[in-house]
Design a protein around this nucleic acid. Structure first.
Lengths: 362, 362
DNA sequence: CTGAAAGCGCTAACAT
DNA sequence: ATGTTAGCGCTTTCAG
């Protein structure tokens, strides 16, 4: 009992080595699956590992490998407000629907991104660190976090165009991949959707079912995706003989969709089709239409965009343009891991094709 | 140019020390805000830091402090399926709505938890690592992750009762706090809601507006919260002279809410009030009611639970029992950080009171 | 194929 | 108040 069995502190490589009667180096090799280890010794080491209940210390390993084996998943917001973020503490002031994080997660979109990222990361033994970057201070923190080596790279999802984060990251020489093409070119890989094609699909569907007086509720026009969906819809309509399409700008929220629909209905009471740039707004539009006595799709056909959970929360369920968010998020993750493995690899972009999902609303 | 300015590798404490003409220790003190440092030197060090562009290396620091300054946020699933998780890779197979992660984030509840956790953590310079633990293998990984010191503790949100994770964590002597009381007692702190009180509020409201033939769509009965909400509703009704209340069990999903409402309507066509154990099910119920020509709240009053985003996605907006999820999540986080600061502190629980939110559906 | 030894960058006694 | 000195636990040349 007086032997050197040290304090119960978690066992280290040293302990395992002693138990197995080999050197630390050998244990390390076995654990990391490096070849050139005598099978007999390998077995002995494994025994020792399970007897001692050894678990490698991540910090020690990271210190020498210079890899954190973690990636940051950052939701990056507007670039405007300088220091707006300092949300009141946690406990009391929560539930505050106006906080950036709360707003972000109110949109089913982000849950899908998380799903895709996690599904790709997990089989590889990695997990995302969730960060938000809606103020310049928060952005600095993200950069610092990466520079500290707390994460090997970043998956960035911007909610607004002109997001300065991608550029900051690129300048700092840090690894990152974006969800959606940045407003101004930055040497960083990204995944994106062929938004215009999606909008074209919606337009053609509306046209195909006979709508002749369609309008659209666009997304925020300072967001590339919002812009592209509008352009795609307008262009297609124009090409089919409808050069003028009423449009009201929304903010991708249900509420803004309701407001937009009210205006559209007031100004164009005879419309027979609506394309909303996302499902949340389409849902809002449906509510307003019904309140005004218009049946969907009988009087007015409605097409959404995204195929998010909101599409099924709607009655009738929304006909919508599917954006394969989970797949895109997984691909984004794959690109990042690739980049980490080959830092000099090329900057690439992967564009996904949308798909029309026909349900009840149009 | 032949001096020892080493390769451009990120600067270390050593570099800063040299630049400032002091020792590593002093720089460390300044950086960590340890007092007893000459103001003049402090300034010099700060200069040197910004000149060199120094950022402390997290791994090195963690190695000696034995703190990761990170916490895991783990969503823990059923305890049944042994090895069910191995989801197909990322890229292709995604969008698979049946994956655990996808299901989890389809519920607005989790976004709110994330919001609360992040809001509390951020001002403290910490970020959550997102993990899922729906299989025994995944649970092992979570335990290993914590034992490795990759995170200092875990915030656990179980989707099912009988979740073995809390016990595993406790046995391993790891720090954790739970969202919701575990089915079987485990020496771990938790936050929870007074579910029965919430259900009582719902019952009284229905009674107050004159409903005499109410039914309820319960949550899964193997979940304590599901059980408690049912009990609370039934007891209150019984106390007011309604000893028999029709109940159909749901699964907290919109779909199950629809199915349950169909059954209820078939068996009790004359009902005038429904209490659904969460908003998603209430939303489904409203849809079905309308399809059957029943107006809400005119013919049938509907009360939900949670006050999630689904409550506002419904027309009319749902009268519901508010569960302050963000605040609860923040408190859970506070408890964990407390525990980390004082490992011998007592195991505690904090129970939040629900609140009735009256909107259009009842 | 295995062991010895040298750090990775930082903090924390312990001197001074 | 500052500097010196040990390591934290691990991987990785480099010898053998």
């Amino acid at each position: 009992m007086t032997d050197d069995r040290r304090a119960a502190g978690t066992p280290t490589l040293e302990d395992v080595a002693r138990a197995a009667g080999v050197s630390r180096a050998t244990v390390s090799r076995v654990i990391n699956g490096v070849r050139n280890v005598d099978p007999v010794i390998q077995e002995a080491v494994r025994q020792a590992v399970s007897i001692t209940g050894y678990t490698p210390n991540r910090a020690a390993r990271s210190l020498v490998t210079r890899r954190a084996d973690a990636v940051a998943l950052v939701v990056s917001g507007a670039g405007i407000e300088p220091e707006a973020a300092e949300q009141a503490e946690g406990t009391g002031a929560s539930g505050d629907g106006s906080s950036f994080t709360a707003q972000v997660f109110a949109d089913p979109f982000f849950g899908r991104v998380v799903t895709g990222v996690v599904n790709y990361l997990r089989p590889r033994g990695m997990h995302p660190v969730l960060m938000f970057a809606e103020s310049s201070r928060a952005r600095e923190e993200v950069v610092a976090y990466l520079r500290q080596g707390s994460a090997d790279g970043a998956l960035i999802v911007s909610t607004h165009a002109e997001d300065p984060l991608p550029a900051l990251i690129a300048e700092a020489g840090l690894a990152a991949v974006l969800f959606a093409r940045p407003a101004r070119p930055v040497p960083v890989s990204y995944v994106d959707l062929a938004h215009q094609d999606g909008a074209r699909l919606a337009a053609e569907h509306l046209l195909g079912r006979g709508c002749r007086r369609t309008a659209t509720i666009s997304g925020p026009l300072d967001v590339p995706a919002g812009q592209a969906r509008l352009t795609g819809f307008r262009d297609t309509m124009a090409r089919h003989g409808h050069p003028y399409i009423p449009v009201v700008e929304g903010q991708f929220t249900q509420e803004s969709g309701e407001a937009a629909m009210e205006r559209l209905l007031a100004e164009h009471p005879d419309l027979d089709g609506v394309f909303a740039a996302n499902d949340l707004m389409a849902l809002g539009a449906c509510h307003v239409l019904r309140e005004h006595g218009r049946s969907v799709p009988g009087d007015v056909a409605v097409v959404g965009f995204d195929d998010s959970s909101a599409a099924l929360a709607c009655r009738p369920p929304l006909t919508t343009v599917r954006q394969p968010v989970e797949g895109m998020a997984a691909e984004m993750t794959r690109l990042l891991l690739d980049r980490l493995a080959r830092p000099d690899g090329p900057v690439t972009s992967v564009i996904f094709e949308p798909e029309l999902v026909v349900r009840g609303s149009a």
